[in-house]
Design a protein around this nucleic acid. Sequence first.
DNA 1: TTGTAGGCGTTATCAT
DNA 2: ATGATAACGCCTACAA
Lengths: 347, 347
Amino acid sequence: MAGRTTIRELAKLSGVSVGTVSRALNGYPDVARETRARILRLAAELEYTPGAAARTLVTQRSHVIGVFLETGCDHPDLQHPFFHEVMDGLKQAVGEGGYDLLLFAAERPGNGFVDQTYLNRCRHHDVDGVVLMGVWSEDPEVRRLVRSEVPCVGVDVDLGATAVLVGSDNVAGARMAVEHLHRLGHRRIATVTGLIETRPGMDRLRGYRTAIQALRLAYRDEYVVYGDYYVDSGSAAMAQLLALEEPPTGLVVQSDLMAVGAIRTATAAGLRVPDDLSVVGFDDMPMAAHMRPALTTIRQDKARLGREAAAALLRRIERSPDQPPTVTLPVELVVRGSTAPLGGIES
Amino acid sequence: MAGRTTIRELAKLSGVSVGTVSRALNGYPDVARETRARILRLAAELEYTPGAAARTLVTQRSHVIGVFLETGCDHPDLQHPFFHEVMDGLKQAVGEGGYDLLLFAAERPGNGFVDQTYLNRCRHHDVDGVVLMGVWSEDPEVRRLVRSEVPCVGVDVDLGATAVLVGSDNVAGARMAVEHLHRLGHRRIATVTGLIETRPGMDRLRGYRTAIQALRLAYRDEYVVYGDYYVDSGSAAMAQLLALEEPPTGLVVQSDLMAVGAIRTATAAGLRVPDDLSVVGFDDMPMAAHMRPALTTIRQDKARLGREAAAALLRRIERSPDQPPTVTLPVELVVRGSTAPLGGIES
DNA sequence: TTGTAGGCGTTATCAT
DNA sequence: ATGATAACGCCTACAA
């Protein structure tokens, strides 16, 4: 009843030694067919499960993937819908590989006699690899972790040459957004950036600039307003753009959340979206299709980001140590109701 | 560089035995002030972290809380915004207590020689407690887990007397929603339920019924339509209600997601919300305030649900084994734009 | 106040 | 093909 079945009990009950039981369970070839069968039967009967702790101790492999998920103190962790979807893919993929996920929560695990660093928290739990999201890549502690023996992958964060970077093709995404608006006849196209210190924030801005130049549109500094991915910054940015002498007619907002804020402010100011102002978001969050107007946006395959992160990690753990340093997933323009031809449907 | 610092190295370097080091680190009183200081200094210097595996092995305490999060195969795990917010609170609270979270992902951990049950997966990792969300409480395997030695708490799922149930006051919430509509003059008030097999689904329906009776409104079977919490079921339910001879003028939708679907369908049918139809949702998901119209809803304190779940677990683990079997958090009516007086603003 | 030693549950290395 | 036995890193009686 209470307590767990140990390998020793199995040994006793099946009349062999613990060594043999272990080998039978782990599928070693040098076990008599009949012995193995007996042991397996017994194990199933007693619902034996190897203790992870003991096994980890001796094999130095925990079959656990750590996750650091920090999204700033301004906004509670886990708040941005993006991360949840990534976690979902991550969970799926590691699960299929026989791994579980450890979500780091404790600041001072162990005995708490010292503030623990990223690296220490990984070592403490012997995680076989770790996924970093929303962390500041220049943080000295992050760099130390990345340089350590622990396999790392960053989702949307560039950790340098020794780690894998998994992300969407943000440059292309922003470019596609601009081109979409251009195709609709817009020429005054502004952008609201994400957190510019983050990799996607920077890349999307770059994509915007590239497209503006390629299309031979005038690049205007005042058409670039800086946000932080969240709703309120989108509102603020919109207000700023509305105050311009020549406000834009098209807007590339580099997250759906900010797009929501931008649209709200524009609407409050009497503008109609998309009639007076077209806006395209970024992400395709679950609610994007359900807004009014429904959000035209650049879709990221968030679940797949998670799956790729897992895959990269497991590959590195179980197979080759050398890895493509970067996995870039394609994005997709999803046209919905928040964009329209300039000046309404004409010609 | 590579590899971790062990207690043995500390012992060697500080010139004492491993026993003393261990006691010093764990704050035992019987260590010379000066010896302890030296050891702690050294530990800090070398960034010593106790290995969780070894410690778990001997103490039988992992300082890890397991999480089972399953939200059905129809809808990808983790999809419903509700759970993310709960996880956030959970993470915070367990973190403060020095625990980390293990998100169960692997179906067959260990050697994979047998499909693992909930209980086995908990034992495998020696989790000190486990939080269950979105699981079917009648599942025999769930029941076995609950009856085991592993402390359990269900968020929105009633696991029986041996576990703690943390949830919102769903009955009161639904009642408040009905009363709000009634106060606005509505008399034909329908409801779209959540998954009726779940505890909140049932409780909210009960709250609706109670309120209808208390207000002496006629209870009509056709005013109760069954949904599954997600957007599409809200749409379908709305369509069904619209086809009635006497459609409702007020609608209590038992999740915000379904409210979104319901409103969309109503709007598509030519109804204006809230002018022709008032709808109140349930949850107050992050996007609720940003919809058009903004959603009137019953707010749950989701983060606090997580925190309470953690608190209940840690209490049971570290202190008293006897617990209040249920933690019920108050909800709050948040009036926004999707509800209005019957017949517009009159009198 | 400190050292010694046994044991937690597994794996893995030798013998046999 | 199987059985002893030594680790793995840590905690904790028990001895000194």
